[in-house]
Simulated assay, not measured.
Amino acid sequence: MSGAATGVPEGARVVLATHNAGKVRELRQLLEGAVPGLDASVAVVDAGAVGAPDIVEDGVTFAENALKKARAVAAHTGLIAVADDSGLAVDVLHGAPGIFSARWAGRHGDDRANLELLLAQLADVPDAHRGAEFVCAAALAVPSTADARGTHAIHVEHVEHGRLRGTLLRAPVGDGGFGYDPILRPDGREESTAQLSAADKNAISHRGHAFRALLPYLVDALDARP
């Protein structure tokens, strides 16, 4: 093992601040061919591969949470870091659950409880007013070289947003995806997000839009570093 910091796999150049293998695969696919000679399967690693610390997501916006994660991982590893934060924003709830999407029912990551609570809260809302959108903020943090104490300052930051508009269904439909996917029908589609193939979902998803918008800045950052 060698690299920018102890515990960083050899060849790693970008850390995606997540333990979600699907997100890592998506970023690798975006980078393939974007940087000549880059083997994205080696260059892009997840937070677990570098022993990154758990980050408390206490920001009040998606962008704040994404930046906090990217900064912490970049400072910890000395590598370029990318992070995202996302959730569901419901029109009649003035943007809620928003940053609380993953813990709407009180316990973080209980998708079923979150979904059931939201449906109950919207039970009397007519179809014409069930608009909502998935929102994602994707953040880039580029560290400087370490100082005498081994500390990496962050000298480049950038955030991009992506959105997927749709209508909330009255009951879950589909077995794919996760979170609120089974109850959002994207605009112009007949299926819920949970019924889309992985390729179709990535093409229109909030996270896909945010990552693709961030890609030129990530490529520039990679080109600027040896």
Rank of each mutant, 00 (worst) to 15 (best):
Phe62Cys: 03
Phe62Met: 08
Ala63Asp: 13
Ala63Thr: 04
Glu64Phe: 03
Ala66Trp: 03
Ala66Ser: 10
Ala66Leu: 04
Leu67Cys: 06
Leu67Ile: 13
Lys68Leu: 15
Lys69His: 09
Lys69Val: 04
Arg71Pro: 03
Arg71Ala: 00
Arg71Ser: 02
Arg71Val: 09
Ala72Phe: 02
Ala72Lys: 06
Val73Ile: 15
Val73Phe: 15
Val73Leu: 09
Val73Gly: 04
Ala74Lys: 11
His76Trp: 15
His76Lys: 07
Thr77Ile: 12
Gly78Asp: 10
Gly78Cys: 07
Gly78Met: 08
Leu79Trp: 14
Leu79Met: 13
Leu79Gln: 12
Ala81Ile: 06
Ala83Glu: 06
Asp84Tyr: 11
Asp84Gly: 10
Asp84Arg: 08
Asp84Thr: 08
Asp85Gln: 06
Asp85Phe: 02
Val90Arg: 04
Val90Lys: 14
Val90Tyr: 06
Asp91Ala: 15
Val92Leu: 07
Leu93Tyr: 07
Leu93Pro: 10
Leu93Gly: 07
Leu93His: 06
His94Ala: 14
Gly95Trp: 10
Pro97Tyr: 04
Phe100Asp: 03
Phe100Glu: 01
Phe100Ile: 00
Phe100Gln: 06
Ser101Trp: 01
Ser101Glu: 02
Ser101Ala: 11
Ala102Leu: 01
Ala102His: 02
Arg103His: 00
Arg103Tyr: 01
Ala105Asp: 01
Ala105Tyr: 04
Ala105Arg: 01
Gly106Thr: 01
Gly106Phe: 00
Arg107Leu: 01
His108Lys: 00
Gly109Met: 01
Gly109Lys: 04
Asp110Arg: 00
Asp110Lys: 00
Asp110Cys: 03
Asp111Tyr: 03
Asp111Lys: 01
Arg112Ile: 08
Ala113Pro: 01
Ala113Gln: 02
Asn114Phe: 02
Asn114Ile: 00
Asn114Gln: 11
Glu116Ile: 04
Leu117Cys: 02
Leu117Glu: 01
Leu118Ile: 06
Leu119Val: 11
Ala120Tyr: 07
Gln121Asp: 14
Gln121Phe: 03
Leu122His: 10
Ala123Phe: 08
Ala123Tyr: 07
Val125Tyr: 07
Pro126Leu: 13
Asp127Lys: 05
Asp127Thr: 12
Ala128Met: 09
Ala128Asn: 14
Arg130Cys: 13
Gly131Ala: 13
Glu133Lys: 15
Glu133Thr: 05
Phe134Val: 04
Cys136Leu: 07
Cys136Phe: 09
Cys136Thr: 15
Ala137Arg: 02
Ala138Arg: 05
Ala138Trp: 12
Ala139Gly: 10
Ala141His: 09
Val142Phe: 12
Val142Gly: 12
Val142Trp: 11
Pro143Val: 10
Pro143Ile: 09
Pro143Gln: 06
Pro143Phe: 13
Ala146Cys: 12
Asp147Ser: 12
